[in-house]
Amino acid sequence: MMTPGAAVRRSFTGRLRVDARFLGILSALIVLTLMVGAFQVSYGDYPIPILEVWRMLLGLGGEDTTQVTVIWMFRVPRIALAILVGSALSVAGAIMQGLTRNSLAAPDILGVSAGAAGAVIGWLIIAPGSVFAFRPLAAFFGGMATAILIYFLAWRGGASPLRLILVGIGIGALTSTVSSLVLLIGEYEAQRNMMVWLSGRVSITNWDQIRLLTVWTATLIGATTLFARHLNTISLGQEVATGLGVPFQLMQVLFAAISVALAAGTVAIAGLIGFVGLMGPHIARRLVGGQNARVVPTAALTGGVLVLAADLLGRLVGGTSEVPAGIITSVIGAPIFFLLLARGMRF
């Protein structure tokens, strides 16, 4: 028989080991992000040696003004946007998967991203010259309206996870069609710009957008990490959550709003980047297990690396005309979606 002391000691050492592993994984992901990012900064029509990149990022270089301009004006914003978008989508996916108890849930698969994009298109046509900061707000309201619509349409004495996904697919198809129709009303130039935006690029950006998205994303991911253990509780169902003293419905609404807001911010700036919200959390769970307090920060990092790597890959395979990151993530993500589907349905 094990003495209580031994059990405590055992769980303590066990926990310590896992924590070291968790921190190790986080550090490894950060190093990976930095490495891919540095390569992305050095690669291009105007190649910059990778050592120079490091010196400059650390503030040690800077004699060559052309290099400084290229790096800070063009390449760093691009990788910053890739990382932000990836993190936001991945955390949004982690939340949605927890809320719906379905490993296939993600902002794009549930149709929330398409709804957000539709609202932005509508907004740009109603008020073409408005301040940029309104775009994420329009996206948020569009995404939220879509999420509520999907929830109600999937409700049949309870919102079953599978119904949510199917209804989401349908609503996603409808909103993208309506968006295309609305696009037809716009001027040709506006149409072209919106098509480029919708295809999911991280290449066109500036520091104002980055600052806006950083504040938006960092706040929301921070809040999610703080409340992540409640996400665990509510994914166990209403009775368990209420029994543990967690305000179930309030938390559900709060988490849903956070995930929609995260996805909406990325849609407003980078357009539709598919399957990151699906892949990011899955990779994270493979690495650190199912506890959301660990999944959320890990997913933020895996999502960032995914979009960063997809953007780099798009430049490498596309040659002169870059393939947008969103298309690369879809080519990789769609088969993974299918594999998860096959596993979930016990094919």
Binding site: S330, A334, P335
Partner: peptide, 8 residues
């Protein structure tokens, strides 16, 4: 899923 895959 397959449509999305081919479409991308």
């Amino acid at each position: 899923a397959f449509s999305l895959f081919l479409g991308s």
